[in-house]
Design a protein around this nucleic acid. Structure first.
Lengths: 351, 351
DNA sequence: TTGTATGCGTTATCAC
DNA sequence: GTGATAACGCATACAA
């Protein structure tokens, strides 16, 4: 049991002014003050103005905690991110934020660092009142939610983005990873490449598996010899890409193109190529995945698979709003289209 | 007045189990259940075990909203970020997170998008109970906090990181921007550069001004001719860096080195150089600022000023803990050391 | 060691 | 259109 630690005794800084104070100042009841502040139509305009003036003068703001307790809702959702620094998430967040804002919801971001304990902590902590729902971005299903979801009870208020959850029926928005990779492979094949490698993500990851399968199927469809289409796995980061490419390029007949599972991997692959004196794209073509902002800034600018990040976030929030409103989302799995962005890292094979 | 919009009526999904239920299940009072769950020493071990078993079986978790209302504290802090995607913030967050975690606090992240309205919204919304304090990272002082801070009242529970707040006495942790830039200039001077330019951040920004001043003072100290040390301003992003360098390099006697106010600006500057057929560092030396993760991955690897991001976050959280504990932080302005990281974008001038 | 009762600051129901 | 009051779920002072 992880027991809440209560650290320092909470020393109040300055008695916060409350609704009763405003009521007293205006000579009204808290009921009327509440109604006026909430924008109820059942309060005389003059009264409302008076209340608003008093609140402004006193610097009063409704205590959300008390209101939430009474309302049994917070109009806020928690977005669980494994790693806030990943530029991939920025636009997803923006999409979530926009839809949430329009619907009168606020968003909070929880950083889990891929730590299941953190995920669980956040989920437990905030799902008991502080937020109305959860959006899981590329994360795992917090353990405390698994139990709830396993039973055939009404859907808990959460949805997943990007990474489909294994073995759980959770509303999800994502992309067709297999198709996206296949598009990249087909582009390289059309360019004349016959020895195409894949630098994939971590094994065990669903995205990795979908991309790997898409790669292999595209290779088969193109009639390429699987012996010349090697695959290496690592995580999604730069060093892993460099390591993967190091090994991929070390063979007797190295690939002329590498399809990567992330832009970071692509950057690592280009480092490896450079070390060997290989020029991109002349000696080696590289395709990334995600189209992070840096992809276009890199030298050479990276050809990559663009994910509709903003739309993914927006769709996820809409899904969550459905769940929160008690509707069962239909469809509950949304697949958004990707786009192959051709820049400067792909060219016909040199030899 | 921005009146709270209350969107859909909050349909409860499933009557949440509460402490009274656990009390009933165990035949104890809610008081004892509460004590057992809170880890009070004044409860018999057997009783505690019984309560924990029941809670576990029922999947019960304490309702934080109710507890917070009662405790008048949430043991959570809100970190306000202008832009979650900026890789600069990741380590700062990690530093905050670690110290917070050790002290029994949780952190929530608010994304403001540099929108004062958002900042204010977050500040008001969450400072009324949902969180105990605020950490402003590189942001502005939310309007609703300005009033509180202006008066000579006890410090409101918030601190600032990175960007010093103008005209307000707020505990702050940052770096010596002027010194940092000066170090870069001195390095270039030692290399033999005499025509050094500065591609700065947005005017009006405190960081920009400190860096600019540091640049100019270092130039004077080195005895360089100010006519050969031009300055351009833009925002901190890549395109601005490219534009600035475009103009800087267009003169009759262009600079042989550019000191940039961010790594992004440096990347933009290198694009501009490339367009003109200038090789970095042979024809142009470039120094960035921040040492974002990409700086080392870039080709060529960027020489840059490293900020102690993790330490900055950790120090900020410690400062906030002081304020939350009712202590007046001393010192209330912490300046952490930077480090010039030499990589592959600086060399003696070519001509 | 445990139970009873009260209040944290709101909002909603019901009177008026 | 406004006021009194109960209830949201929990933690603690006080009693036992």
């Amino acid at each position: 049991m992880n027991r809440p630690i209560r650290p320092t005794p909470p020393p109040r800084h300055r008695a916060r002014i409350k609704m009763a104070d405003i009521a007293q100042m205006t000579g009204l009841s808290t009921a009327t003050v509440s109604r006026a502040l909430a924008g109820s139509s059942r309060v005389r305009p003059a009264t409302r103005a008076q209340v608003e003036a008093a609140a402004l003068a006193a610097g009063y703001t409704v205590n959300r905690v008390a209101a939430n307790l009474r309302l049994q809702a917070s109009y806020a959702v928690l977005v669980l991110l494994p790693d806030v620094s990943n530029p991939f998430f920025a636009d997803v967040l923006a999409g979530i934020d926009q839809v949430a804002h329009e619907a009168g919801y606020g968003i909070l971001i929880g950083h889990t660092g891929n730590d299941p304990a953190r995920e669980d902590h956040h989920a437990r902590q905030y799902l008991t009142g502080s937020v109305d729902g959860l959006i899981l971005v590329n994360g795992h299903l917090p353990a405390s939610l698994v139990a709830a979801q396993r039973s055939s009870e009404p859907a808990a208020p959460f949805v997943a983005v990007s990474e489909r959850l294994r073995d759980h029926r959770v509303p999800t928005v994502g992309i067709d990873n297999g198709l996206a990779i296949a598009t990249a492979v087909e582009h390289l094949v059309a360019l004349g490449h016959r020895r195409i490698a894949h630098a994939g993500g971590p094994l065990g990851n669903i995205l990795t598996e979908e991309r790997l399968r898409g790669f292999q199927e595209a290779i088969v469809r193109a009639g390429l010899d699987p012996r010349h289409t090697p695959v290496r796995h690592g995580d999604f980061a730069i060093p892993a890409g460099e390591a993967a490419a190091d090994r991929l390029l070390a063979g007797r007949r190295p690939p002329t193109a590498i399809v990567c599972a992330s832009d970071h991997i692509a950057i690592g692959a280009m480092r490896a190529a450079r070390k060997r004196g290989l020029a991109v794209p002349r000696d080696l073509s590289v395709v990334g995945f995600d189209d992070i902002p840096f992809a276009a800034a890199f030298d050479p600018a990276i050809s990559t698979v663009r994910q509709p990040r903003f739309a993914m976030g927006a769709a996820a929030m809409r899904l969550l709003l459905d769940v929160l409103a008690g509707r069962t989302p239909d469809p509950d799995e949304i697949v958004l289209p990707t786009e192959l962005v051709l820049r400067a890292t792909t060219a016909p094979p040199g030899d």
